[in-house]
Design a protein around this nucleic acid. Structure first.
Lengths: 189, 189
DNA sequence: TATATTTGTTACCATATGGTAACATTTTTT
DNA sequence: AAAAAATGTTACCATATGGTAACAAATATA
């Protein structure tokens, strides 16, 4: 049998990502990862230092929503902010990995996840900090962003929210439109 | 030893509620409930029909956010809507039981939870349906409501979101203010 | 009072979890 | 080639899970 540490580390890491994306935070466990990677779980402890070390590695690699960094400069003026939102929300709904980390933060926060959340939130902070003077607009913007996250996460297990169809593309366009319009209205004040 | 079915059923049901409120959906299990109730787990199966039956009972009793039904009529006109929001968000942040059901919907949806979510969402629908004509305002309102839910749930494990202090009372007042102002701006269009 | 029936506990089952120690095998170093 | 180090698996441990069967004790019925 061929032995290759780098390759098996990669297998383990990939298995972790795959499970997180598909099963969510609840599915991520030592046994499940080892099984998915087709490797003995002892190696997870030896190479990564268990679950905690695995999450730390993940955090430090920091490959969550890198696609957003491209459009980062767009948030300068108010008009570009609308584009920034549209691309940002679109990215969020595509990026299941980011979604699962956001979901994770809603259900636990322990010694294992600590580092992951710290790095992740730092990244979010860098990308999503608004430099608007209007405090009220800032709050409204944050709320709507939070709402977008909420409905995105909700859509994994629910097809509707009250009368709103979470599977319809126009629903999400309406949300985008609402955010844009809100910003317009605030800026005219 | 005294035997009283009604009393032990109550103990079980109360234990379930207590665990859900304190530990969240993840803490709710047959063993944990039996232990908390100080009763044999066999009885949960005999009296409730296991986890599924327990959740069904909970759903049918329907004692989630009953306090909101009182202010239900306030959402008629636009001015009262602001009060409705203020009281609604305040209630949400107080009612940890409602919070945990909302959290629950973000992490699973199986045969057990099916009935609970169905009844719960029906209740939410009755209480939170807006009868505004403006489609854009509706979307904005829903987003901000969703955002409020998101930050409320997030605050259980996180003290901050980016630069926003989730433990500060003024933060939540700012959110309320932002929603109110948004509605005002939309209504003037 | 004797007999059912209901209520409750103990004991067990299969399965899954995180974690470790002992062993075998391959690769590297001397 | 021999010794040492790295890589990998198997086997085990303690613990927890949901679920059931068998039994004991109390209550209701005859």
């Amino acid at each position: 049998m061929k032995k290759d540490r780098a390759a098996t580390e990669e297998k383990i890491y990939k298995a972790f990502l795959d499970i997180l994306k598909e099963k969510g935070p609840q599915g991520v466990g030592i046994n499940a990862i080892a099984k998915e990677a087709g490797v003995s779980k002892s190696l997870i402890y030896r190479y990564f230092g268990g679950m905690k070390g695995l999450l730390l590695r993940f955090a430090q690699k920091g490959d969550f929503f890198k696609s957003l960094s491209v459009i980062d400069e767009k948030k300068d003026n108010l008009e570009n902010l609308k584009d920034f939102i549209k691309e940002g929300t679109k990215e969020l709904r595509k990026n299941t990995l980011t979604q699962e980390i956001l979901r994770w933060q809603l259900i636990e926060n322990n010694e294992n996840t600590k580092s992951l959340f710290k790095y992740f939130n730092a990244q979010v902070g860098k990308t999503f900090t608004t430099n608007t003077k209007d405090e009220s607009l800032n709050a409204a913007f944050q709320l709507m962003l939070g709402g977008y996250v909420y409905f995105t996460l909700l859509s994994k297990f629910n097809k509707t929210f009250i009368a709103t169809d979470l599977t319809s593309e126009t629903t999400w366009e309406n949300f985008d439109e609402a955010i844009a319009k809100t910003i317009e209205l605030f800026s005219k004040t």
